[in-house]
């Protein structure tokens, strides 16, 4: 009797794709058919998928441009790494420590989202793009000069190496320009897979709820949304902070995948890279974000040997501009419409 809602169906397909991909990769791993270089891409690919899906919440579903998603990833990475080191003795079990560290990363991301969002999202206009751009840069610059360590006297935080007086037996967590060093690599592919599933659940369930509809209403027509009693700032903030929290969790997983991580790994290029995934995958399309992130992250990494790497950001930029032109230009749209069969229905959780 009851029809399955089109949006929920799309959601189930997305879970299916992710679970199937995980199963196939696990099988390949079991058979030893995956090269070492490919294996090393698995965790970061998961992180970038989470980054893309979460950025899509801000850009595609809320309709606000964010150019600093890497900043939230950075917050998550360094707070997650710090948590994992500080909790080394308290939580000896690695997966549990990883989970807690990712939760800490998510909290740090959310906090960053609140700090950026509360003043900016009250305003109408493209202020968010400008402020998030600056935010990403500021986070990077702060971490570049930040020294954090722990010894028997407690936690030490300093803004320069001279003032950083760690006792000889202490552990340095973040060492300014060198970033986090001596990290125990806790990240696993399974954790990445679970994080993707959690991200899908959060974003898709949000979209298909009262709050998600309010968020999409703001995107489609702010004046009409207000006229039916929707609190603009509250729902903008809700989407933005959720998006930042997921980026923080992805950052923690990413940071715990390497023995050392520098702040420059989460710079403007990273933010733009994720934005390219979202735009190419389709604004508002969760599945598009997953596929674009997976393909566009893994393929160029595999082509590294071909010497194309120097041009990677240039190629992304050109592709991004072409896509923006194509989606804004009526003639080009008409042309594309003839080549690509028209997509039906809402750009919600496809």
């Amino acid at each position: 009797m009851k029809k399955i809602n089109k949006n929920s169906l799309n959601g189930f397909i997305n879970y299916g794709i992710v679970i199937a991909a995980f199963a196939v990769i696990q099988a390949l791993l079991g058979m030893g058919r995956l090269s070492n270089s490919l294996q090393s891409l698995l965790v970061p690919a998961c992180c970038y998928i989470v980054m893309a899906v979460s950025l899509n919440l801000t850009v595609g579903i809320l309709g606000e441009l964010s150019l600093g998603h890497g900043g939230f990833m950075s917050l998550g990475a360094f707070s997650g790494i710090a948590a994992s080191i500080l909790l080394q003795n308290a939580i000896p079990l690695a997966p549990a420590r990883l989970a807690v560290s990712m939760a800490v990363g998510a909290l740090a991301g959310a906090l960053g989202g609140v700090i950026v969002g509360v003043p900016v999202l009250r305003l109408q206009g493209d202020y968010l793009a400008i402020v998030t751009l600056a935010f990403g840069q500021i986070i990077k610059n702060i971490i570049m000069v930040l020294y954090v360590g722990v010894d028997e006297r407690g936690i030490h935080i300093a803004a320069s190496s001279e003032r950083f007086d760690l006792a000889p037996g202490g552990t340095a967590i973040i060492k300014g320009p060198m970033g986090a060093v001596g990290v125990t690599k806790l990240a696993t592919f399974t954790a990445g897979f679970i994080l993707i599933l959690i991200t899908l659940a959060v974003v898709q369930n949000l979209v298909n709820s009262r709050a998600g509809r309010a968020i999409m209403a703001l995107r489609d027509n702010r004046i009409a949304a207000e006229s039916v009693g929707i609190n603009t700032t509250k729902y903008k903030l809700m989407a933005f902070v959720t998006s930042a929290a997921l980026a923080g969790a992805a950052g923690a997983l990413f940071g715990l995948n390497y023995s050392s991580t520098g702040a420059s790994k989460f710079d403007f290029n990273t933010s733009i890279l994720v934005l390219v995934f979202v735009v190419l995958g389709g604004l508002g399309s969760i599945r598009g974000s997953i596929i674009a992130a997976a393909l566009l992250y893994v393929l160029p990494e595999m082509l590294r040997g071909l010497g194309l790497n120097d041009f990677r950001m240039l190629i992304y930029a050109i592709v991004l501009i072409l896509v923006m032109l194509a989606t804004n230009n009526d003639q080009l749209k008409a042309l594309l419409g003839r080549v690509i069969p028209k997509r039906k229905g809402a750009v919600t959780s496809g």
Binding site: R210, R213, A214, M216, A217, R219, D220, N221, I223, A224, A225, S227, V228, G229, I230, G284, G345, A346, V347, T348
Partner: peptide
């Protein structure tokens, strides 16, 4: 001023926002 990308039902449900 409708929410053009959403379904008819979702448009009405957005109107019901404060009843839920």
């Amino acid at each position: 001023r409708l929410f053009n990308n959403l379904t008819v039902e979702d448009n009405v449900k957005i109107g019901l926002h404060n009843q839920e």
